[in-house]
Design a protein around this nucleic acid. Sequence first.
RNA 1: GCGGCGGUGGUCUAGUGGUAGGACCUGAGCCUUCCAAGCUCAUGGCCCGGGUUCAAAUCCCGGCCGCCGCACCA
Length: 578
Amino acid sequence: MNEGERLTELAKRRGFYFPSASAYGGASGFWTYGPQGAALKSNVEDAWRDRYVVKEGHQEISAPTVMPEPVFEASGHLDGFDDMIIECGECGATHRADHVVEDNTDVEEAESLPNEEVMDLIAEHGIECPSCGASLAGEPVENFNLMFETNIGPGSSSPGYLRPETAQGIFVEFPQLSEYARNQLPFGVAQIGKAYRNEISPRKSLVRVREFTQAELEHFVDPEEDEPPLAEVADVTLPLYSAESQQADDGGQRDLTVREAVDEGVVASDWVAYYLGVSKRWYERIGVDMDRFRYRQHLAGERAHYASDCWDAESEVDGDWIEITGFAYRGDYDLSKHAEHSGEDFTVFKQYDEPITVERATVDPDMSYLGPEFGGDAQRVADALEALAERDPSAFDADEVTVEIDGEDYAVPVEQTNFSVDEVTESGEHVRPHVVEPSFGVGRIIYTVLAHAYETDEVDGEERTYLSLPPEQAPTTVGVFPLMDKDGMDDLAREIAGDLRSAGLSVTYDDSGAIGRRYRRQDEVGTPYCVTVDYEALEDDTVTVRERDTTEQKRLPVDGLAETLEQLNTGELTFDDL
RNA sequence: GCGGCGGUGGUCUAGUGGUAGGACCUGAGCCUUCCAAGCUCAUGGCCCGGGUUCAAAUCCCGGCCGCCGCACCA
């Protein structure tokens, strides 16, 4: 069994995660988090929220998972996710139909053509299967859309899609969110939630799935003015694997501090560099092994349609590097697209310290002239004049000004345009924020944390498996056991378990079988501490506390136990301090 | 989606054309003064559908699921 298989076996047996609906044969790419997994997931999400929402001073929202079609037309997902697939009748390989056409003809942008035309092109040019060389003529070209489609309400007149990323739920609400932020940049909006992609081939348990949880932060910044607080993370060392290194023969990972990475220009965006620094610490906190972690820059051809610079956090499991977070500088791509498609205002008004006076060329066309003259085109001519005045006021110097609309020239006497250059006072300007986006895959992080926590050792000649999870992330903080289920040890142990629960700790009580078995059980789900009530406890109100990784025990008074465990859980105390 | 391999209690597995056995786990009880000990008992299984056959968990076909490779991964 490899690392992943061992983990999946443990995950299923102990209730971290398992395939969904297996009573009905299941559906690939869907996983249910069991009791341990749901607790771990919740802890990871809480740690994320603490770091990226609370500590950063951002806000969190919760948007729908289903959104109407226009949202995804605007975002580019409808086109971007809709691949043309053709299958070779001979060898069965599937290919991107638009790609084979582009590779074998001088047709560009084949993706924008109807499927029938692409089929015709394939037949006309006698295009062959890139895998086996058989003719692809006559093979059907089909669409494969990575988004799950549904209908909103009865009938099919209102198509909707399950969101392929949580981000769009934030972008589309920008006008409201900006208002709540009192229109002050920068501000950040986060969301933790499910996203859906109808993957062709789900793989590796939680790594490639069809429903997954994202934790995304959209940080809206003024591209002219805002700077990240780089000093806070300047000394954090980043294991960077740049695009340049990836392409070089002897290229490898370089360890640079955030400061060095910015100064040397290895990471282009200060904002991205800031979040790489913050996130390195966060990954360490939740239990990612830093010896199996790197930041990899996207190669030029690999970048998403919206990103100008993009780095992935990657973790290593079974020798494979898994993308666990994407850090993208999305520019104003998303807000511009939504502004364009919706006609709403996706900017923030930034007031100047002092109002400024500027010369502005304006037109106020006489519609009583344009109307009779140009009929139905009058409004478009007026719009064109306005745009021209802004772009090139000198065009109005002559007696007549000409604008072009759809290849046709329209000449207008300047006097009818009421062209003038005025001094106007401007108190500020509309700024389209840029977006810095760290986007975390929660399931992949959980998979990584479990894989990196999985340890085996030997105790008294017996092999032991344990999860060396950070106490903060562990599903259960403390196991409470009576040494034996009799003589009042059970009563005291139950009482202690109740007290610890009242103090807010996650507690498991277990009185079954031999004590060693109970320790092993907790080891396998990563419970960091176990409290045992023995005969001595009945005498002097002390109990033993056992630490998971070392199996060492210390005797502590029952009084103050909850506080001590709480401090161990948060890291204020270590076991050695006791 | 293609190809290869696979699918037997919760987990790991043995096995055969005549409807299954082990280990671990789990539960009940006994025992036990701190690391999967022992004893007794118990629960629980051949992925689904079709075909061949007197008889299919076993052979064949299809599906589903998993692993690996390919492709895909805005």
